[in-house]
Amino acid sequence: MTSTETGAGPGVRTMPAPLNMMRLTYTHHEDWYSTPDDGPSFWNVTADIYDHEGRGALEHVGDFQFVRIDPFRTRDMCGVLDGHDGDLGMMAETLLDPSTGHFRDDLDEFTEPIYSSMLILTHARLEKPWQGFGLGALLTARAIDRLSPDCRGTACFPAPINGGPSDPDDQETRPLAIATLAKVWEKIGFRHYRDGVFVVDLGSVTLGEAITALTDSVSKLPQTNEDDYLDAIDAR
């Protein structure tokens, strides 16, 4: 369900564009007659290289998608999520107690039950030129931080689970891919909860500390000069 970079290769690469040109855009849609009780809310977050002088978005960096759920406000949350997407239904069955429709009691050991809402990260992808710098974890963490008010935690499944039968090579490499992606999410505080689902506690300082550390690490990497980048864009 989620994917991102799996680590830098040999040597130190230069990022394709300067970080000060990167912009995160958050979009959310709802129907005219929608109310908070109608169901979960869906958020899309896009990362782009943006020209603040008027040309707008110049290069797409990545996409991140979240679902915000509150089982205390939406009846039959498992059924509602499964109706949207089978993978979301599987996540809901892992997080929610089928007998009550509320979060499982043992989830309290992983996320403090101070709020009734929770985020689910359903998709995280970087364009290939931007992979390998640690940006996937950092941008995901920043998006979670922005969307986290009144949420007890964030959950994710660190591997695609909706592609149907895969070829033998995929079956052989899948465990390694899952383990590698899990290590990426662990950088921002995700811990394995159950059945392959990872959660991060938003009631702790873990996420904020991870953002600070990752920002410092990424900012030290070589970056393409802004004038050189814009000249290259103009020459295309």
Rank of each mutant, 00 (worst) to 15 (best):
G86T: 04
D97C: 10
T74V: 15
T122A: 00
E109C: 02
R73D: 15
S99K: 15
R75M: 07
P129S: 07
Q65R: 12
G79C: 06
V80E: 10
G62W: 13
D87E: 12
P71H: 13
D87L: 07
G62V: 13
P113D: 08
L126K: 07
E93G: 10
P129M: 05
S117A: 14
D97I: 05
A92M: 01
R68M: 09
T94L: 02
D87K: 00
L119H: 00
E112G: 12
S117N: 00
L88M: 13
T94E: 07
G86Y: 11
E93Y: 05
L95C: 10
M91D: 04
P129W: 07
M90N: 12
A124F: 01
P71R: 13
I114H: 10
Y115H: 15
H60W: 13
M77H: 04
I69Y: 03
T100F: 05
G101R: 04
V80C: 08
L88P: 04
D70V: 10
H60D: 14
R73K: 15
M90I: 08
T100I: 04
K128V: 04
F110I: 06
I69V: 15
R104C: 13
W130Y: 15
D76V: 03
R104G: 01
D97L: 02
D63S: 14
P71D: 09
S117W: 00
Y115I: 00
S99R: 15
E109A: 14
F110P: 04
L88H: 02
L107G: 07
L88F: 05
F110V: 06
V67F: 02
G101V: 11
D87W: 00
K128C: 01
L96Y: 11
D87M: 01
V61R: 10
L95A: 09
P129H: 04
P98S: 04
T122P: 01
M90Q: 11
R125M: 06
G101L: 11
H60G: 15
H60V: 08
D85E: 11
G86I: 06
L126F: 09
R104Y: 03
F72W: 12
C78L: 02
D97V: 09
P113T: 03
M91W: 00
L126G: 06
I120C: 05
P98W: 04
M90C: 09
D76I: 02
P129V: 05
L107R: 08
M118R: 02
G83S: 06
G101P: 09
G83D: 05
R104E: 14
L121H: 04
R104S: 11
V80Y: 06
H123M: 03
Y115D: 14
D97G: 03
F64A: 01
